[in-house]
């Protein structure tokens, strides 16, 4: 089966299930919005009645940044908590949502609605949660430990370096190795989830091991498909960054315009996420 065809089919499947993107966007937006409201009030309370607010509207300025850092220096730990705790909750939420995403994409002929989406979320939550626990161990072993071992081996070349070159080469190699290892593990657990849904099995460990066998036989094809979708994500991101870079942002109209543009980008990200699963399901179905 040609990878590119799977990729195109994945895009089509994702488009057909656009409602999932809407659900995910609403959840992502509302969740983030809840987190940003206190920040809005904090900034607004501090700056809305000051001329500094005008400078802030004009763009980044080291004067207001300095004032903020000084005033809020005592709550830096709280800010770290404010970032980490909601992130963990969101992770749990996504473990739940993955059931709906994969569940719906795997039955492409049925129309997506809230009921069947959330029903799938509930149905697969515990299986996916167990899989998540396994994945954490695997991430630690592979991305953490193996990366560290490879890093230490590579450091032999940098330890006695007499110029910066070995350091540059090794640090870039480490970044590449990290990214490649990460994509492999991430892809593996995507297929493990797909297998759990399609086989409707509750034996998480067994299905995970079967997935290993599935991937082993056609690893480079699967990986190529994964990297192709990564490339799509990269292209979307660059388009967003280049456009946002040149957009003015200092009037209410442009603030609104950039808001819309940012949300389109988030939509794009969620669309890519669906393409990952849709293409992987298509690929998996073809071989199983």
């Amino acid at each position: 089966m040609r990878i590119f065809k799977v990729f195109i089919n994945g895009i089509l499947t994702a488009n057909n299930n656009y409602k999932i993107i809407i659900y995910l966007w609403v959840i992502n937006f509302l969740y983030s919005f809840m987190l940003v409201v206190p920040i809005y009030f904090l900034i607004n309370m501090d700056i809305s009645k000051s001329l500094m607010g005008e400078r802030m509207a004009q763009g980044f300025d080291l004067f207001w940044l300095g004032d903020f850092i000084y005033k809020f220096r005592h709550i830096s730990l709280a800010l770290i908590g404010w970032v980490i705790f909601p992130a963990l909750i969101y992770l749990l939420l996504y473990i739940f949502l993955n059931g709906g995403i994969i569940g719906r994409l795997s039955v492409n002929f049925e129309k997506v609605n809230l009921k069947n989406f959330f029903s799938d979320c509930g149905q697969f939550f515990w299986r996916f949660f167990k899989l998540f626990l396994i994945s954490i161990i695997v991430y630690i072993i592979f991305v953490g430990l193996i990366y560290k071992i490879i890093g230490s081996i590579l450091e032999i070349f940098t330890k006695r370096a007499v110029t910066e070159w070995p350091l540059i080469i090794v640090s870039n190699l480490k970044i590449i190795i990290f990214l490649l290892l990460f994509t492999i593990i991430n892809m593996f657990f995507d297929y493990a989830k797909i297998r759990l849904v399609i086989s409707n099995s509750k034996k998480v460990l067994r299905e995970t091991l079967f997935t290993l066998n599935f991937l082993r036989r056609r690893f480079f094809k699967v990986w190529a498909l994964y990297l192709l979708i990564c490339l799509l994500f990269l292209i979307i991101t660059i388009i967003y960054l280049e456009t946002a870079h040149i957009m003015p942002k200092n009037t209410m109209f442009f603030i609104f315009l950039i808001f819309i543009f940012q949300q389109i980008y988030i939509f794009g990200r969620l669309w890519v996420r669906l393409i990952f699963f849709a293409s992987e399901i298509e690929f998996y179905r073809y071989f199983v």
Partner: peptide
């Protein structure tokens, strides 16, 4: 008050 600055950065 003007909320423009807060809105821009909260956004």
């Amino acid at each position: 008050p003007s909320r423009k600055g807060a809105l821009r950065w909260s956004n």
